[in-house]
Simulated assay, not measured.
Amino acid sequence: MKKLLLGVALFIATISHAQKGSVLLGGNVGFASEKIGDDKSTNFEFSPKVGYQFTDNWTAGVEGSIINVKIAGLEKTERYRIGGFVRYALPLSETFAFYTDLGAGYQTNSINNAKGMYVNMTPALFINMKRGFGLNFSIGGVNYDNIDGKNDLRQERFGFDFGKTFSVGVSKNFQL
């Protein structure tokens, strides 16, 4: 029950207040760790984005990611992503807003020159600190990706990872 309440609080806290005609500049830092038996993996992600807020609630833009994946006993890999996103924001007050990002794009993996695509949906909470500068909080989302290397089997992943991951980001709205 405590995890559910924490999840709901973080979900509500990640809402972003969009301002029509402004440019959104932001980014997230994420960390995930998983241990199954003796196998352990850790992921670190940096994801900048820039978008144009064409209505009070809708933003569209470009996103990218650099993801470092380390699995115990295996080679460390890096994954790069570039794509687009659309955001719907619902202001709750002058301080808090809830938003959901839907992103899709192209990805590569440093091992065996693998390539593929990704799609993700991430609900989040925005806390307006001052003059359009704020903090973003997310505790996971829904994601799908696939990747195919020259000598490797095609990999497809579908994830529903609410409460399993946590990311913190910053954003700034600039009026045009």
Rank of each mutant, 00 (worst) to 15 (best):
A18M: 09
A18I: 09
Q19S: 11
V23Q: 04
N28F: 01
F31R: 06
F31T: 04
F31A: 05
S33W: 13
K35P: 09
I36L: 11
I36A: 06
G37K: 14
G37S: 12
D38Q: 07
T42G: 02
T42R: 09
N43V: 14
F44Q: 12
F44R: 02
E45M: 09
S47E: 08
S47T: 09
V50E: 05
V50P: 10
G51W: 08
D56P: 01
W58V: 11
G61A: 02
V62I: 15
E63C: 08
G64S: 11
G64F: 00
N68G: 08
T77D: 05
T77G: 01
E78W: 12
E78N: 14
E78F: 09
Y80K: 07
Y80N: 11
R81P: 01
R81T: 04
G83M: 10
G84H: 00
P91A: 06
P91I: 05
P91R: 01
L92S: 01
L92M: 04
S93E: 06
S93I: 11
E94M: 00
Y99Q: 12
T100E: 06
L102C: 05
G103N: 11
G105R: 12
Q107M: 15
N109L: 07
S110K: 13
A114V: 03
K115I: 07
G116F: 04
T122E: 12
A124E: 08
L125Q: 04
L125N: 01
L125W: 04
M129C: 12
G132R: 07
F133P: 05
G134L: 07
N136S: 13
N136G: 09
N136E: 14
F137P: 06
F137Q: 06
I139Q: 13
G140D: 06
G140A: 05
Y144C: 02
N146H: 10
N146Q: 08
K150F: 03
N151S: 11
N151E: 10
D152I: 13
L153S: 15
R154V: 10
R154M: 08
